[in-house]
Amino acid sequence: MSLRRILYNTTVRSPLLHHLRQLSCWSCGKEVKLVSNLFCASCNALQQPSKQDNYFKILGVKETYDQDETELAKRYKDLQKYLHPDKFATRDKKEQEISEIYSSLVNEAYNTLLEPLARGIYMLKLRGKEIPENTEVDQGFLMKIMEKNEEVENAETEEDIMKLNQENKAMIKDLQKKLSTAFFDGDLKRVTKLLSIMKYYTSIDSQIQAAIRSKGIIR
């Protein structure tokens, strides 16, 4: 089976990618209709990524906040398996450069959509919004976050650390559910507020994971 056919079978069947674009192939110059902008049907040359494609379209998943980590990983592996620069070592120099661009783009897409906070910020950006640097947060909430940070710093036993880990994961999961609803409703003001809160709990998560690694805790 050809490389082009394999990629078509593994990445193009997503409903989001069933859009045809007309363009000229950089290699043979022929006008071609491509699905998902991957390979030229005439000469099989890998094409430039389209600037119109966001991370969801690149990975071939629905543009929604709710994402299946297993499905994301599968899409990522399928793409990298066939787009990795090593696969183009004997091809035209331009095609090698395109494969490097594509491979890097797929990495960025996967890493962004995999993380709840990064995914939310990216979706907000797609809607022309950003989280303000000086987002107003309730003082009582800030005190709660400071106390939680101290708890993490002072946690000594595996039991204490894993308890904090479980609690913080539950909080992030709850925020994900609320974000999903807010995005679905188109309530970007609420989305912004929830992402601002999630930033704090994501920071706490990073501290907890560092503590788990430093103490050699096996989960």
Score class of each variant (00 low, 15 high):
residue 56 F to K: 05
residue 84 H to E: 12
residue 141 F to W: 08
residue 206 S to K: 15
residue 185 D to K: 15
residue 36 S to P: 01
residue 52 Q to I: 10
residue 16 L to C: 10
residue 184 F to R: 15
residue 100 E to I: 01
residue 92 D to I: 05
residue 132 P to Y: 08
residue 24 S to G: 10
residue 218 I to T: 07
residue 36 S to L: 06
residue 37 N to F: 03
residue 160 D to G: 00
residue 149 N to R: 15
residue 62 K to V: 10
residue 81 K to W: 11
residue 95 E to C: 04
residue 118 A to P: 00
residue 156 E to A: 10
residue 52 Q to M: 12
residue 70 T to P: 00
residue 47 Q to G: 05
residue 78 D to I: 00
residue 173 K to G: 15
residue 156 E to L: 12
residue 82 Y to I: 08
residue 101 I to H: 03
residue 135 T to S: 05
residue 207 Q to M: 15
residue 205 D to F: 08
residue 26 W to Y: 09
residue 133 E to F: 12
residue 219 R to P: 02
residue 37 N to L: 01
residue 118 A to C: 02
residue 110 Y to R: 01
residue 7 L to E: 10
residue 185 D to R: 14
residue 7 L to Y: 09
residue 46 L to G: 02
residue 176 Q to H: 05
residue 104 S to Y: 02
residue 136 E to D: 13
residue 210 A to L: 12
residue 115 E to L: 08
residue 75 R to L: 01
residue 63 E to P: 08
residue 123 M to A: 05
residue 74 K to S: 09
residue 14 S to L: 01
residue 29 G to R: 03
residue 43 C to V: 04
residue 113 L to K: 01
residue 36 S to W: 07
residue 68 D to W: 03
residue 92 D to R: 02
residue 83 L to M: 13
residue 136 E to K: 14
residue 170 A to N: 06
residue 157 T to Q: 03
residue 86 D to Y: 06
residue 111 N to G: 00
residue 29 G to F: 06
residue 24 S to F: 09
residue 89 A to V: 11
residue 135 T to C: 02
residue 99 S to C: 09
residue 128 G to P: 02
residue 143 M to L: 14
residue 183 F to V: 11
residue 188 L to T: 12
residue 124 L to R: 00
residue 127 R to E: 14
residue 6 I to A: 12
residue 101 I to F: 04
residue 88 F to S: 03
residue 68 D to N: 12
